[in-house]
Design a protein around this nucleic acid. Structure first.
Lengths: 238, 238
DNA sequence: CGTGTACTTGAGAATTGTCAAAGGCTGTGG
DNA sequence: CCACAGCCTTTGACAATTCTCAAGTACACG
């Protein structure tokens, strides 16, 4: 998993304070867990995990954005998740001996916190409330995947693109006069692959949306949402 | 959630013995949990849960098959899951006060076991190993959804149909001379909606597969897989 | 055995994918 | 600071696929 680098910029405690997973713990318990945590940093483009690798840690994103992806039989990259600050992954492998089923790559400089399998087991067995929190977080993720899944099942491509834009606006946007500014974490190609459409099709849809005044592409990595109501209509959130 | 009916055919203990969730428990603990369990039966076509309803129980399928679905903005039914014996659902709502986000309908006569929110909490807090098992099961479900998600992202429709057939063969098939017999739990329309394609397109694909000798449609609810290797090729599992 | 529902098949319209070329941004090196 | 190379993106044109609408067929149920 790359070379080990201790994270200089965050005190051990900071990380786990930010993580919803541990939010129900007392100061004392947090200290105990903090002592188990390891830190690493990655540059943009570095792989945190490769498919097939065996992993033994829960990974919590402390800073930055990563993408989790696989390659389809056709060789296309299928993005499964974008994880950012406070998100975690790797939980599937903590109670089984499965190998990683996807690759994870840093899309920006990234700092992560690691909690090994055995340490996490210790925490869960002694703090059932953390287990309940984890179950709850997994439930949330499942609910979110159900939504994504449903939007993938939508045949109308305009609706899928609109849904993605709204989703990004919520997760990566910041309010500005004239509309929410989205700082796109991935390229057009990445978005197209995420949606399961050709990148040319995505380009055309975005151009059409721009012509219709729904969005404005300020820069390849910045899109401004000018008319979120119309986007919501398109997305089918009537 | 329909009218309450005690399940006459299964002793209380039977249910939870079958559920992987509780497989790590001792005889004694099983007895304790068994005392919490309630049973109900549903006829084919009955709704177990309606979208927006508030639920307070974990539902474990003891017998039969159910579908979980929502309606898209276009009014189309989008199937999210098919659950059968040993599967459970409703866990998302146990640690939040969210309402159900999908409908669940019996596709056959169904018997379920119910464990209420407060009872489950009690079990999890006193038996951390059940919590770990639950986390592990949720992880499995997430991994499975990731696979489904990826296959939804495949642009090639033939591949998606082949993937669905192989999946069904594994879950609902039984071996027979000449190839696995699949007992389809849902209609063609349901399959088409699940895949996000028009039902006519699915018909055409199935007809083509039959012409090519990959499958044989014996009956509207029975398909025989004649050439699973070719299906796997199509699905992209090279 | 008839009726209703679900499924299949056909044909034309609409959408998307593919291939090709041009445009724009980024970073390097002079 | 500018020029150029490389990569990503956009646009165009055509081919392929899928959707829609419509008619006909098979099956299930009463």
């Amino acid at each position: 998993m790359g070379s080990l680098q201790y994270c200089e910029h965050c005190g051990n405690r900071l990380c786990i304070y930010r993580v919803p997973l541990f939010s129900s713990l007392s100061e004392e318990n947090l200290h105990q867990i903090a002592s188990y945590i390891q830190h690493r940093s990655f540059e943009k483009g570095e792989l945190l995990i490769s498919e097939g690798e065996s992993t033994d840690s829960l990974v919590i994103i402390h800073q930055g954005v990563v993408k989790a992806f696989r390659y389809t039989a056709a060789g296309r990259e299928q993005i499964l998740y974008l994880f950012s600050e406070g998100d975690f992954f790797g939980e599937q492998y903590l109670f089984s001996n499965l190998k990683a089923t996807y690759n994870v790559e840093a899309l920006s400089p990234v700092k992560i916190c690691l909690l090994t399998k055995s340490h996490l087991h210790k925490v869960l067995l002694t703090h059932p409330e953390v287990a309940i929190k984890l179950i709850s977080e997994l439930g949330k993720r499942i609910a979110q995947m159900e939504n994504t899944f449903q939007s993938m099942g939508i045949r109308d491509v305009d609706a899928r693109v609109a849904t993605l834009l709204l989703d990004f606006a919520e997760r990566y946007g910041r309010e500005a006069p004239g509309g929410t500014l989205i700082n796109l974490p991935i390229s057009r190609e990445g978005m197209a692959n995420y949606l399961g459409i050709a990148r040319e099709t995505l380009s055309r849809k975005l151009s059409k949306f721009e012509d219709d005044g729904l969005i404005q592409s300020l820069d390849l990595k910045t899109i401004q949402v000018k008319d979120s109501d119309s986007l919501e209509d398109l997305a089918g959130l009537s």
